[in-house]
């Protein structure tokens, strides 16, 4: 496997964060968390990630704005991007996919489902 894959998780609920982090770390991912879109903006230019997971419904900088930011950035323009959002936000999710997100997962989700989606986003060929 080599180096663990680096994941940026952007989610404003601490519980959902803990849940996702536990699921990913158990599978050997190195997870960095951001509690808001802004925090992600601050982290992104200084680090490199192999995959980014983001919530959409966040205050100020929404997931959609973050997705566009990521796609326009020099470093992360190609990085796999996974949306995690609750049902009921189909329209926003659609927009997220149009803006360049690769996959989405509906909250609440089983830990295996998250790991599965992230794995597939990392190696789309498989």
């Amino acid at each position: 496997m080599g180096e663990p894959k680096r994941v940026l998780l952007v989610e404003d609920s601490p519980t959902m964060r803990a849940f996702a982090v536990a699921a990913l770390e158990a599978e050997g991912f190195a997870v960095t968390t951001a509690g808001s879109g802004f925090e992600a903006l601050k982290i992104l230019p200084r680090s490199r990630f192999d995959v980014i997971i983001t919530d959409i419904n966040m205050p100020d900088i929404t997931g959609l704005e973050l997705i566009r930011f990521v796609r326009e950035s020099a470093v992360h323009s190609k990085v796999p991007l996974v949306i995690i959002s609750t049902d009921g936000a189909e329209r926003d999710r659609e927009r997220g996919l149009k803006l360049g997100a690769d996959a989405y997962l509906v909250k609440p989700f089983a830990p295996e489902a998250l790991v599965e989606v992230v794995r597939r986003a990392l190696s789309p060929a498989a």
Binding site: P14, T15, M16, A18, F19, A22, A23, A26, P111
Partner: peptide, 10 residues
């Protein structure tokens, strides 16, 4: 260390 337990704690 089961994810669900960690979530419950929080």
């Amino acid at each position: 260390d089961r994810p669900i337990d960690r979530a419950l704690q929080e």
